[in-house]
Write a protein that binds this DNA or RNA. Structure first.
Length: 354
DNA sequence: CATAATGATTTCCC
DNA sequence: GGGAAATCATTATG
């Protein structure tokens, strides 16, 4: 914004020292008194230079007076001449401005978080994932989700109103400056290129302000996000149903209780934990379960029998004969006993160390 | 309120 | 990078 006065100023100064001025003056009017002319010119220049110190009304009046001054066309010519000399340097100075990588990063982030994207519907990726997790067994933390979403949309709303405000201010200012330039073009030569340049300068300035807005919005989102994740990092016990699902898998795969990625995903879905960040909960569960089971198989025997019996019942209800499965001391089906033995064997290092 | 249970994190290893 | 083991931290329980 300080570019504009500087532009005017530099012209003023350059003009004062212009060697061709006197010549133009001479051309403009026939006169005999050279000293008087110089005095005259000095006056005009003085008036131009000090016009910014005056009140608006005064300046307006003086502007009009200067505009009607007999020497105005001559001055204008001089200015045109100066312009022709300086325009090259102006053209070289500007041009090319590669898209700011920082700005792009912010934009991408805001888009990814759903702050900058289309209104609602899909919303943020995180919010969508969170919403997905509200289905199924893990519906107990929906309060956190709605809280998160509410805060996010609040941020989003602030961001958009601010952005709109900036946009509007930018447009207003641009038209204002353009009007000013148009007005000034009556007294000094202004090329379309210059106006263009001015506009781009204004836009750059405003986009730097916008960048600050984006920056702070990003920060806010990050803070919200980290708080949200922190809150979820706090321990949250699986509910009964989820534990049963996990246990069922664990004990029916005792020989190899290492669910594949797909199996884990499936289990996570069944247990109602869909948020990608919490997908590891299943892995954690199995990690903990394996180590704790191995540490004290006896303690888990009852549990193991229970789940084994359950799957055995399921199996026998399909395959007519269930004679062995009913023994109270060995409720496991043959397959489960085998699994258990194999797993124990494996855990005690039976395979690797003789 | 002490203790057990249990989910999460860290460290180390392959 | 994934798993085992140890450990931390929170939640459930009596």
């Amino acid at each position: 914004m300080d570019e504009q006065p500087r532009l005017m100023h530099s012209h003023g100064v350059g003009m004062a020292g212009h060697p061709g001025l006197a010549q133009h003056m001479q051309d403009g009017t026939a006169g005999t008194d050279g000293e008087g002319r110089k005095q005259d010119i000095g006056d005009i220049l003085q008036q131009i230079m000090t016009i910014t110190d005056q009140s608006l009304d005064e300046a307006q009046a003086r502007k009009h007076a200067l505009n009607c001054h007999r020497m105005k066309p001559a001055l204008f010519n001089v200015l045109c001449e100066i312009k022709e000399k300086t325009v090259l340097s102006i053209r070289g100075a500007q041009e090319e401005e590669p898209p700011d990588p920082q700005l792009m990063r912010l934009d991408n982030m805001l888009l990814a978080e759903g702050v900058a994207g289309p209104e609602k519907g899909g919303g943020s990726a995180a919010a969508a994932a969170a919403a997905a997790a509200t289905g199924g067994v893990g519906a107990d933390n929906s309060a956190e989700h709605s809280d998160y979403r509410a805060k996010l949309s609040q941020i989003r709303q602030i961001y958009h109103t601010e952005l709109e405000k900036y946009e509007q201010a930018c447009n207003e200012f641009t038209t204002h400056v353009m009007n000013l330039l148009r007005e000034q073009s009556r007294t000094r030569p202004i090329s379309p290129k210059e106006i263009e340049r001015m506009v781009s300068i204004i836009h750059r300035k405003f986009s730097s302000i916008q960048m600050q807005l984006k920056q702070s919005t990003c920060e806010a989102v990050m803070i919200l996000r980290s708080r949200f994740l922190d809150a979820r990092r706090k321990r949250r016990n699986f509910n009964k149903q989820a534990t049963e699902i996990l246990n069922e898998y664990f004990y029916s795969h005792l020989s190899n209780p290492y669910p594949s990625e797909e199996a884990k995903e499936e289990l996570a879905k069944k247990c109602g934990i869909t948020v990608s960040q919490l997908f590891v909960a299943v892995s954690n569960w199995f990690g903990n379960k394996r180590i704790r089971y191995k540490k004290n198989i006896g303690k888990f025997q009852e549990e193991a029998n229970m789940y084994a019996a359950r799957t055995a019942v399921n199996a026998t209800s399909v395959s007519a004969h269930g004679s062995q499965a009913n023994s109270p001391s060995t409720p496991n089906s043959a397959g489960e006993i085998q699994s258990l033995v194999l797993f124990s064997f494996r855990l005690t290092g039976g395979l690797s160390s003789p």
